[in-house]
Design a protein around this nucleic acid. Structure first.
Length: 306
DNA sequence: AATGCGTGGCT
DNA sequence: TAGCCAAGCAT
């Protein structure tokens, strides 16, 4: 810290004070913020990967009621875990969550590890989630960088008009340097709230931002000219991931045991299915099978994995 | 390193 | 209203 100037230090303490004050008054009340049990925090963080708070709010309590502990999750049928994941999207996360539970039981005596390196080695846990668990569950004074915090810090660091976007590592370094020791939990949560509710991507509400006086990007966020994204692979203009989702959903809704035939399934997910779609449909199923999301049984019937 | 991976609300 | 996009991760 010796290299930092006094003005920089003052700026930091002013910044953190403003954010923490704003958070105390305006922070959202979210159920997982009152949790420190690693399993319960883990479930929330995995659910929140690329998924809005509003969606997680409705699914989180139901999932925990169904799988109240890591051990209960390991003992569950995978098909039930996938069913409980309904409405969440990115079904691979449900699989990885259960695989994580099994890994923790086998390799960590059922205790979710508290250090970042071991966390990051677990299935479905990347840099963000590892740091989130370390901070929110284990009380470590470490930064967290998600898409919200990345946006807030990027705008705070330099005028938004000036580009290109900073490197990922620079953002983590900046987050580390701003961390108010002993307040990391609230600070990280506060920055995420700020990004989600005020410093939003499209139309930031600078008039309501506690940092408006400190932010070089205030009222200067221009509309993004996005490079047109390459269309995803799909069929009839519909991305494959949509058909994958429909496939899993159809199998969730199937009440009778024994699975569905390929043809019945194909017609269900693609109403105008014809024989020319056979090859495409087969490759779709193959990938789902490879991911472990479906089982193709002898007798050619498809179901969720046990 | 670029791409694949859900879902449903919002504009 | 058709397209955009949201607490990332794995390969």
């Amino acid at each position: 810290m010796r290299h930092r100037s006094n003005t920089a230090l003052k700026r930091k303490s002013l910044l953190t004070a403003k954010v923490l004050r704003w958070y105390r008054k305006n922070g959202r009340q979210l159920p997982w913020r009152n949790e420190d049990d690693p399993y319960r925090v883990l479930v929330s963080e995995v659910m929140l990967q690329q998924t809005q708070v509003s969606r997680v709010l409705t699914k989180y309590p139901r999932f925990l009621k169904r799988f109240p502990s890591l051990r209960r999750l390991t003992n569950a049928k995978t098909s039930d875990v996938i069913k409980a994941w309904e409405g969440m999207g990115y079904n691979n996360r449900a699989l990885r969550l259960q695989r994580l539970a099994v890994t923790v039981l086998d390799e960590h005596r059922g205790r979710i590890p508290g250090n970042i390196q071991e966390l990051e080695a677990l299935p479905g846990i990347g840099r963000y989630t590892a740091h989130a668990l370390a901070c929110f569950s284990f009380g470590q004074q470490v930064p967290v960088v998600d898409t919200n915090i990345k946006r807030v810090l990027t705008r705070l660091r330099s005028p938004q008009s000036r580009r290109p976007a900073p490197k990922e590592e620079d953002i983590w370094d900046l987050a580390e340097s701003l961390l108010p020791r002993q307040h990391s939990h609230d600070w990280n949560q506060a920055l995420m709230d700020l990004g989600a509710t005020i410093c939003t991507a499209a139309q930031p509400k600078c008039d309501r931002c506690p940092l408006v006086d400190l932010c070089p990007s205030a009222y200067r966020v221009s509309r993004r000219t996005r490079a047109a994204k390459k269309p995803e692979p799909g069929r009839d203009g519909i991305p494959n991931r949509i058909y994958r989702g429909r496939t899993i959903q159809a199998l969730r809704e199937l009440k009778t045991p024994g699975g569905m035939t390929r043809t019945a399934l194909a017609r269900k997910i693609k109403p105008n299915f014809t024989s020319v779609d056979r090859r495409w449909s087969e490759s779709l199923l193959r990938r789902l099978q490879k991911d472990g999301l479906i089982r193709i049984r002898a007798g050619n019937r498809i179901s969720l994995p046990e």
